[in-house]
Design a protein around this nucleic acid. Sequence first.
RNA 1: GCGGGGGUCACCUAGCCUGGUCAAUGGUGCCAGCUUCAGAAGCUGGUUCCUUAGUGGAUACGUGGGUUCAAAUCCCACCCCCCGCACCA
Length: 945
Amino acid sequence: MSETSKIEQKWQKRWEEAGIFESDPDAKRQKFFVNVAYPYMNGAPHLGHAYTFIRADVYARFKRMQGFNVLFPQGFHATGEPILGVVERVRNRDQDQIEALRALGATDEDIKNFAEQGPEFVVAYWMDRWVRTLKSAGFSVDWRRSFVTALTPTYNRFIEWQYNTLKNKGYVVQGTHPVVWCPHDQSPTGDHDRLVGEGESPVEYVMLKFELDDGTILPCATMRPETAYGATNVWINPDGDYVKAEVDGKAWILGKVAAEKARDQLHKVDVKEEIKGSMIVGRVAKNPVTGLKVPVFPAGFVDPDTATGVVMSVPSHAPYDWMGLHDLKQDMGLSQKYGIFQEALDAVVPISIIKVEGMTENPAVEVCSRMMISSQKDAEKLDEATDEVYKKEFHQGVLRENTGYPGVRISEAKDKISADFVRKGWGEVFWETTSEVVCRCKTRCHVKILENQWFLKFSDEEWKRRAKEAISRMNLYPETSRTQFLNTVDWLKDKACARKSGLGTKMPWDRDWIIETLSDSVIYMAYYTISKTLKERKVDADGLTDEVLDYVFLGKGDAKSASKKSGLDEKAIEEMKGEFDYYYPTDVRFSAKELIPNHLTYHVFHHVAMWDDPRMWPRGVSVNGFVTLNSQKMSKRFGNVKMLSDMIETYGSDVTRMNIVGSNENMDDADWRDDSIDAFASRMRMLHSLSRDIEKSKRKDMQNPDKSFISMLQSRIKSTTEACELTRFRSAIQSGFFESTNDLKWYIDRCGGIENCNRDVLEEGISTIVVMMCPFAPHTAEEIWEGMGNKKLAASSMWPEANEGKADSESESGEDMIRQVADDVRQIEKISGIKPKKAVIIVAPQWKFDVYGLVSKNKSADFKTILSMVKEKNEAAVKYIQALQKRGELSGNLVSRQSQLDLLEEAKAFIGKQIGAEVEIQDAETSKLEKARNADVRKPAIFVL
RNA sequence: GCGGGGGUCACCUAGCCUGGUCAAUGGUGCCAGCUUCAGAAGCUGGUUCCUUAGUGGAUACGUGGGUUCAAAUCCCACCCCCCGCACCA
């Protein structure tokens, strides 16, 4: 075992023994509830998880050090399909799955148990891994409150109570809903279950009911129903498989596949006979919109498997249709084969129904000829042409007089036209996927309308309003995420909240359904507050009646009656209620930004539904970006995944924590860089070794460097604290760790080594830095802290507070001047190439001074004036500047001439060391050097001799 | 298509809300020097171009305009990149 991990384990043990992370209600202290979205138990934590989790731990530690009674619990998630999927695949000896588990460190014995013991074992296995890893990362979690969803009966009971409550309030409703459906698996096909068609979703077509002479309906599916006014004919694939069927009691002809789809879309379909498309070519169909009778023509571009397999032809506005006609007219053989007369073909001319500025009457014709498309087989160009025509017509096109909507813009009227057509009985809605979708089982999917599905009624306006109210009250880190939350609320439609398969809690009133994973993970933060009691008092699920939970969480009814009916000890009930009342709501919830559009917004919705009292609504959310590895996307497929436990083993927890949390903040992606690790490690080593040398310092008096260092430390404290509050940990590490240690280095250098430092100042500086790095690198902080003679744990020490009284901008300006002079001396030496024996520094005459650190708080004029006054040797400048300072319009300090002389005199040795030469300070006014007296300088002048 | 976030001097990032201390923060890389048996680490300095004894100037914050005494920062247009879009954790 490495030295680092020995030290880290030592402190982890000490923390555990001290029990400082276990939190119980304490009326005298203010609570703070930090939590992370719980992880799913089908793998071990990798750096992606680690980023969010470490951020949460840093914040919990920070708040604890600020004196809050911090509750930081951690639960685990097992609801849903994937765990069952793993078990099934292992049972089927799926080699890919077994390899994947081995790669995660599972032994053959483990894998055997996966198969034999099933989900319980899988969950227990990963939970164990997670807990061990999080502990080794130094997490300050109250482990007494942990639990896992789905497999915990009391948790199931809690979820039942949640859904009973929601249903009583009318937030859970039953309804129908279109989903992408696999006819083979007989289940919805989610994105991750697809071989082809990731990201595709159901869209609404309108199938317009063209009618053949005998009354048979020929449904033409279209996404542009308005173009029905320009339909010249109907297309059918002559070689395609079609059926004659009775649909909802009427005779239809449609694609064979389409008949199946229609059946899944709540139509009553009875297939009578299979036919080829060619059988209806040449017949005449009546357009339901215009009443016009148009012929049915053959076209190879019609896919009988897409939508209804029948389309109407609008050659004026659809490039495919125009080319279809073109081909038919060219190929006499084809038209003869299907018995289409030349006259019939000649009769078909494009009917323009949309006017587009800057385009001819028939945009499709125009574009086809411009792009030199020669046939309907030129699919690539035709798709491009279609896209172009469609976009122009949609955005700029206006319907002509020959339609039912003259002068209307397509983009504005499209939805209304569809609705009108359906209402008038000219057409019906038909669902299709946006593009081809193929299930993992290799079956082509289509859209099914699910019936009797349970929904959370997120479309409810009042519910939305309350969700928005809650969001507006929340602290969001970063603030920029707020619009995303609000937009999500607007955008959210009813959400299916139950499935037929997977692990989870059964819908209490409809045991066929299982509450789905995103729907049973939204108010469980409340469960943390009772989880400890449930375990300690061994409460079983039966005891947790709705009445008990109503009392505990909502304050309804009374404990006595709830106790009597449930048989649960009244003390247990009161204890749970006490915990809940004390800790709720959550103060900050940490998560990755990908959960904003779903989980995080749902969790707001559910809280406002469950609790009428806004004081119980979540108070804050902090989101972070993704994690990349050395700028490469983390991806299991390319083996580009790093496990947290490996990183801890290799680098130690502290460095790992800093390297990930310090790499970025806000919603930007965090980049794990192997090569930045040293920066953290070496800085910590430096701090550690300095802390051991403190006792070498002997000086007692306060000199300028001392005052300046202490002053700068105050601003570091301030900015570090502010950054931490906003969960901007990169900034916090920047100022609280890197910049403050830089200050420390300068201070020691300036004093001429640690021996010449002021003991108290040095100790205060190092202590402050160590305490500020404690949330980030807790183990190292403890180690240094103890080494400095502290008895109390660093983790329970107080976070430093900036002391305004110690701010001293004058001495900071002084140090700044020394820095400048020292820098200049080095520059001159270097550029001149002289190895000097002596450097003479001459302080300028009265009017010639520098404006170190001066900042104008007023806008333009003043600062400009000052500069020009200084340049023009105006002695009044000093008075003017002083007046401005008095009025508070200028911040910063002038370094007066006398101070310049004094400071430089005192810093002679330090400056001399830069070039290894003697330094002499002279006053320009009394200088013996003629050159110096006459020099036109603004800063102290330097001559190297 | 809808919604969100971005484009900064090698790379990653700060600054932008509240315009002037911005040739612009910090880290990494690279170069030089010190240290070292060597390596690693550490330390110091440099890292747009020209010029200079610590200076001055030019060009620069996606592109093009605009507002202003003054723009990385405000306004307009454009180009490009990333992410989410539901029954899935």
